[in-house]
């Protein structure tokens, strides 16, 4: 990660920590609405890689605040939601790891039990997949000037993949937490409820699967691979 993006992330963490109790004011004061506005127009001049990084932090820390709506244009709200989802899933994983390494039953931490280890490995794979999808989509959007039409394949694939991870991630996170994770007080529901909500927003599984499926059917069997490689080779060249 570049030094500029590291700084941006530090700023986001500080502003979102305040925003958790104060609402949107600290987010506005820190200027996040200007993240994508060009420097020449008084903005930060950020790219979608920056948006992805900031929204992952928002998804983990303040998933209920309308930060994506302030940063990203209307046509890219599905893309923005994928970053929020990746961040919230990362937070659910971190909480789960912390819990199983701390909570003792049968005289040892839960994380020592193979059944728990295997569950968390499954969950981690899903989280990594969504993080990768969000990052690859960001790379595509930055190559095509944030044109949602030119990134239609990637938006559909990434949102669909993220949606499909929600069930696995939320159910394993809650399962390894036991009853404490089901309480209002404990932090887990503050990311799992938003994840359940985001799965249905800006296109549920059926919406994106039908759309991507029709697009791929139009490409033909060999055409899928040809299109996928052409798109990623182009990402690289530009």
């Amino acid at each position: 990660m570049s030094a500029a993006r590291e700084m941006l992330c530090d700023t986001a963490r500080a502003a979102f920590a305040e925003a958790a109790t104060a609402g949107m004011t600290p987010v506005e004061e820190a200027g996040f609405a200007l993240l994508l506005v060009p420097e020449g127009e008084g903005g930060f001049g950020g790219d979608w890689g920056d948006v992805n990084a900031v929204l992952q932090i928002a998804g983990a820390m303040v998933p209920d605040l309308p930060i994506a709506a302030r940063i990203a244009p209307e046509g890219l709200q599905a893309a923005a939601t994928i970053s929020l989802m990746a961040g919230a899933m990362g937070a659910a994983l971190a909480l789960s790891i912390e819990h199983v390494n701390t909570r003792q039953q049968f005289g040892r931490p839960l994380g020592k039990f193979q059944a728990v280890q295997q569950s968390l490995a499954v969950m981690a794979c899903e989280v990594r997949a969504v993080e990768a999808a969000a990052a690859a989509l960001a790379a595509r959007l930055d190559v095509v000037g944030r044109d949602p039409v030119a990134a239609d394949f990637e938006i559909a694939a990434a949102k669909l993949r993220a949606n499909r991870a929600v069930g696995v991630v939320t159910s394993i996170a809650h399962q390894v937490h036991g009853a404490i994770g089901f309480t209002r007080e404990y932090a887990l529901n503050r990311v799992t409820i938003p994840l359940m909500r985001w799965r249905g927003e800006h296109g549920n599984d059926a919406h994106w699967a039908a759309r991507l499926g029709r697009q791929v059917a139009g490409l033909g069997g060999q055409g899928l691979w040809a299109a996928m490689t052409e798109r990623s080779d182009k990402n690289r060249m530009l």
Partner: peptide, 8 residues
Amino acid sequence: ALIGELSA
């Protein structure tokens, strides 16, 4: 839908 999910 299946083609879409597998492609994703």
